[in-house]
């Protein structure tokens, strides 16, 4: 189990805050505004959910977005559907998220 301070600032696209009682708020974002989902955030969120799940001090989780959408924008950056290896990687990532 990792204490909150070890991962609080580890995720560029998720702002994490936790109340005294253990309510963790997760606000997904890109540069503070609405999230633009891409292959990198996909990878990052796998780790994010894993960290949250591994910390027994998180008692309840609120998942929200930033700006005017929860998730409505996608960029092809960081996705690789053009090779069997890339597809395998994306598939493995999606299975874990």
């Amino acid at each position: 189990m990792s204490p909150f301070s070890t991962y609080k600032y580890s995720f560029a696209n998720a702002r994490l805050t936790r109340s005294e009682s253990g309510v963790l708020e997760v606000a997904l974002h890109t540069d503070g505004g609405k999230l633009v989902f891409n292959g990198h955030t996909h990878e990052q969120f796998v780790d994010l959910f894993h960290q949250i799940g591994s910390d027994a001090d998180n008692r309840v989780v609120i998942l929200t977005g930033s700006g005017d959408a929860f998730m409505d924008a996608i960029s092809p950056e960081g996705f690789d559907f053009f090779s069997p290896r890339g597809t395998t990687r994306s598939t493995a990532r999606a299975r874990r998220s």
């Binding site: 989780v61 609120i62 998942l63 930033s66 700006g67 959408a69 929860f70 409505d72």
Partner: peptide, 8 residues
């Protein structure tokens, strides 16, 4: 808890 602030 999902708190949806807009389109999904």
């Amino acid at each position: 808890i999902a708190a949806l602030n807009g389109p999904v």
